[in-house]
Nucleic acid binder design. Structure first.
Lengths: 202, 202
DNA sequence: ATGCGATTTGGCAGTTACTGCCAAGCAGTC
DNA sequence: GACTGCTTGGCAGTAACTGCCAAATCGCAT
């Protein structure tokens, strides 16, 4: 759980780790292929396991839930988000900080095409949307102290305001990515984000 | 599906309907009691059915999913939301319209205590939050045309901006209700909502 | 009140995601 | 080559949910 740092590319140490890595990739690719081919809900774990050549039990050991099979492990998003913002100097305002966080997360995708495919899958599958929104809510809560620190703690309900601002940033990201998908990936998401935020802030 | 209008209080027509109504209430109350007593995830359908004196199969015929057992059928929220906003004159601005919609939905709760209990359950149960957020997203999409109509269609990406504004309103409602629950229901939610929106649009 | 037709109910089996348990297999070490 | 220990696979079980069929129940006409 710890040695899979950044160095894992060239020194797989033991054969075991190498096999693990291989199996992991095989499963992930199979899953993603099937998801895009026939849809998320229509693809069963049994099918993925069968086509990837492993048992269901093993599959669940690699990826705890069906959602984890989407790849680009989403817990990392939260990590990058908080890291990015916490590394910013305190002089940076709330909105700039949030924008930087959003940009950092978006930069995590390998390619424009991959991002588009993921967003499309996400926006078109109810069960996925639900899980994603829930996970994101947790990220928002993690961000709370970081954002509160950048507000003048004069007035009383700082928590509520900070929550609202964070949630608004994500709301703009949602609106931007939805529109982006609707336009088949034309233009830049961050531009759309800025446009959305501008519309909200009057 | 149609005769359960507003008149159903005193004229249950046939015995069947009366029995149905009774069973429905019995199931709902049992479910809500168990949910608040031992938590949503820890309560099984089997237990609810057993304690309500019906078979699981029948329970699922009354309420299609476990979430439906929360009561205050949430599809009605979306209805009230769109109805309220669509009945407003076009001169009313976007933010006022959204505020009116939010207020109307909040007014749907029977009592402050009931609202508090529901919000508490919602905010403390991950699986419920996920489902609720998803459902809400659909409401937001339904609202889109209504809100777009109130914007000057001058600039290009009206859809994105409208989505962002709608989502922001809900974001503020979220922040407000969360804070409200944290404070054990002290104060008025709409006041918190206004505060949040002010902070965002600051 | 009796019987008929329509509806509701309950039980049973099956599906899907997911977990615990235990035995068999295989990498790495001596 | 035998031993140690991680990994794997199979099996059973759970929880939400659905389809199917037979039995109980209701409403109504006779």
């Amino acid at each position: 759980m710890k040695q899979e740092a950044e160095t894992a590319r060239s020194a797989p140490a033991t054969l075991w780790d190498r096999t693990r890595q291989l199996a992991s990739r095989e499963i992930l690719e199979t899953a993603l292929r099937l998801f895009t081919e026939q849809g998320y809900d229509e693809t069963t774990i049994a099918q993925i396991a069968r086509e990837a050549g492993v048992s269901q039990r093993t599959l669940f050991r690699y990826f705890g839930t069906k959602e984890d099979l989407l790849g680009g492990n989403q817990d990392r998003f939260g990590q990058v988000l908080t890291d990015t913002i916490s590394e910013l100097p305190v002089e940076v305002g709330v909105w700039e900080a949030l924008r930087a966080g959003v940009a950092a997360v978006l930069a995590l995708h390998d390619s424009r095409e991959q991002a588009l495919e993921r967003f499309r899958l996400l926006h078109n599958t109810a069960s996925l949307r639900a899980g994603w929104l829930e996970k994101r809510l947790r990220f928002q809560e993690d961000l709370l102290p970081l954002i509160e620190a950048r507000m003048d703690a004069a007035t009383g309900t700082v928590g509520a305001k900070a929550r609202a601002m964070i949630a608004t940033a994500f709301a703009c990201l949602d609106a931007a990515s939805m529109t982006w998908v609707d336009n088949d990936g034309k233009g830049d998401i961050m531009d759309l984000y800025d446009e959305c935020l501008a519309a909200v802030r009057g």
